[in-house]
Amino acid sequence: MYSSPLFKGYRAIVQRDLTSLRRRPFDWLLPLAFFMLVNMLFAIAIGGDRTALANVAPAIIWSAVLLAALLTHDGILRPDYESGFMEQLLLSPHPLPLVALAKSSVHWLTTGVPLMLVAPLVAMMLGLSPRGIQALLLTLPPTTIAMSLLTVFAAALTVGQKNHLLATLLVLPLTIPLLIFAVATIDSAVAGQSLLAPAALLSALAILALTLLPLAIAGVIRIMGGQ
């Protein structure tokens, strides 16, 4: 199945985008720096109270993850439209939902995965308990996957727009269930309760995003390509 022509296009796009990102390390290092900075701002603003900081650590980390992922939206599709690559894709027989999935995969590999590596470190600096960090590690994959798809959706809707804040208005309301369940998972872990329920809901949301959003993104890509 993997060698079928359907997935050849998917693989080609992922490889192409990863190569171009390897040559521009700034594109994926910047969100990481942003993520660390937001956390640092909160830590400084809250001050020396270690228990207060540990209590709000999940909230800070998750808000920073969502914002850092969304921050990268501008670089995802705009270069492809400007270079004419998107036009080629629209004319090619490759199914657009797979193109959308490829774009989201690249975003996840270059933003989600680095964030997943750095977030536990930041959590430790904020004083989150070991149980909380465990729960954080558990919730990061589904949340970042869903977030990558939402970010590509925002990128598709706002391609060619000068105003970068529009993407946040469009997508942040949709991320709130993710935020609620991600924070709830960590909070119940810290409080010693079972975290199965919020973790299951979080995975359900990630699966839903993974199935439905590529179709929506494909639709928007086609509309914006036909301008």
């Binding site: 359907l6 199965l196 329920a197 809901l201 995975s203 359900a204 993974l210 199935t211």
Partner: peptide, 29 residues
């Protein structure tokens, strides 16, 4: 073939998401 793949993915995705949600509702949130 493409339609079939799309349909399979949709049914599988929505089905498993629903199953996970039902599981979560049984736990007390």
């Amino acid at each position: 073939k493409r339609r079939l793949i799309l349909l399979t993915v949709l049914v599988f995705g929505i089905g498993s998401a629903t199953a996970l949600m039902l599981y979560a509702f049984q736990q007390n949130l």
